[in-house]
Design a protein around this nucleic acid. Structure first.
Lengths: 242, 242
DNA sequence: CGTGCTTTTGAATAGTATCAAGGCCGGTGG
DNA sequence: CCACCGGCCTTGATACTATTCAAAAGCACG
């Protein structure tokens, strides 16, 4: 976990929030930020831990989750390159969620004090960030609504499409639309608000219906459009930006 | 629906967001804002309508809801004096939700342009607002998590406590802790993500357990602490601020 | 080549939604 | 003032979805 900072101005993630700052501000951020590489399956921050700042994914795959009571963890969000994480905690004393890497990931961290200085001096930046929160709120409540109305099968399809939206397809075989992330049945269940057994059953059914192919944790979406049709009425799990 | 503006500086809702502005800015807002009195059971804005600004409840009771598919509407939020409504839509083209009065309500409206000017010139105001969104996001996801883990009975209890948190008890009989809002069984069901029949059944059970008394739509919480205990493990439906 | 974890599949169960019918109440008009 | 009407509430019976429990099979790893 060495500090491996590089210049924000050279970062390939142009959708990253920091890029909303005036360009002359970026080198100031370079001096303040702290970039670290995490191996797979490692926590970036913990639920109930003190919030010291906000994290940005330079590259990698991350799941954000919170611990249930007697039940399993609940995955709240998936995030990939350029996405922000930990913003749920910003303004609170403690993180309401944990974040862990699903693959090796490089994470940039900016502390509360530096952020506050940026917010106080860059109204457009702050405004953009506020609009992002507003959008996140809309998504969160749309999901809540759909979760309460969709069947478990529909929720599982939505979870698959959400994973695709966030991480895209594997680059190793460009023709096969294989989800570019390894999720256990339990993790998919957690996203879809159901059980691992139900996910297993449903994936088998979806395969028999020729909607997907599965080989272990590799899941291939044979016809994304048709899957979308199956849940079209509910809108889409969307993770297009940040 | 006549314009009945009065000075923000004299408003009794000190928790209203506008009060976060420097006091010399309030008269500027007075000139921009538009205050209207709505009768009971009237829409303030409609889902999918164009978003023109943000509303603040000077006094009254409001429900925010979105239409399901084939199912009934889903109540997303209850709001009372000093609370902000319509902020979910801010930054979007269209409202993701509708809002309707549960009682006669006086609503202040500020248009997008004026808000933008305020946001660009008052960093602390913008920051406070952003932190509010952040908090709303946390609440929304906490609720989503709990909804997926609680039983219908627990969700209904949570809905009752949420109504109490938002609107308090009726002032007509100070000793009886009667919820200060008339909600139909369907509306309670919508908050608790269940059916009207289930609410009816559960209220009967809660009454037999001496937790509540009900007389039509008047619901009296006999022992708020005990009700809280029943769902303690899940945290509280909280609507403390704005 | 075990060993332990994940996945699959089956069977039983529990929790809710759905459907249906009757009762209560408040409001309206005679 | 009373009777009627319609909407909301209550209650019961039924159906069904999804969770739980259990057991076997698959797989990855040392």
């Amino acid at each position: 976990m060495n500090k491996i900072n590089s210049a924000c101005a050279l970062c390939e993630n142009k959708n990253c929030f920091i890029q909303k700052l005036p360009s002359q501000r970026l080198s100031w951020v370079d001096a303040k930020k702290y970039t670290v590489c995490f191996p797979k399956d490692q926590n970036i921050f913990w639920e109930n831990a003190e919030v010291n700042g906000i994290h940005f994914i330079k590259n990698g795959k991350v799941k954000v989750f919170s611990s249930g009571l007697n039940k399993k963890d609940k995955v709240v969000r998936l995030a990939g390159d350029g996405h922000i994480i930990g913003h749920r905690g910003y303004g609170a004393e403690q993180y309401p969620v944990s974040a862990a890497t699903l693959s090796e990931s490089t994470i940039c961290f900016i502390d509360n004090g530096s952020l506050y200085e940026l917010f106080m001096t860059n109204p457009v930046f702050t405004y953009t960030m506020m609009m992002f929160y507003s959008q996140e709120l809309r998504k969160s409540e749309q999901r809540a609504k759909y979760n309460s109305q969709m069947s478990s099968k529909e929720r599982i399809i939505a979870a698959l499409l959400y994973a695709k939206e966030t991480f895209g397809y594997s680059q190793t075989d460009l023709n096969a639309q294989i989800l570019n992330v390894y999720l256990t049945r339990s993790e998919i269940a957690s996203i879809a608000d159901t059980t691992a057994e139900e996910v297993s059953r449903t994936l088998t059914i979806l395969e028999s219906e020729k909607h997907i192919l599965k080989k272990g944790r590799n899941i291939q979406l044979l016809n994304e459009k048709k899957l979308l049709d199956l849940i079209r009425d509910y809108g889409i799990y969307d993770n297009a930006d940040s």
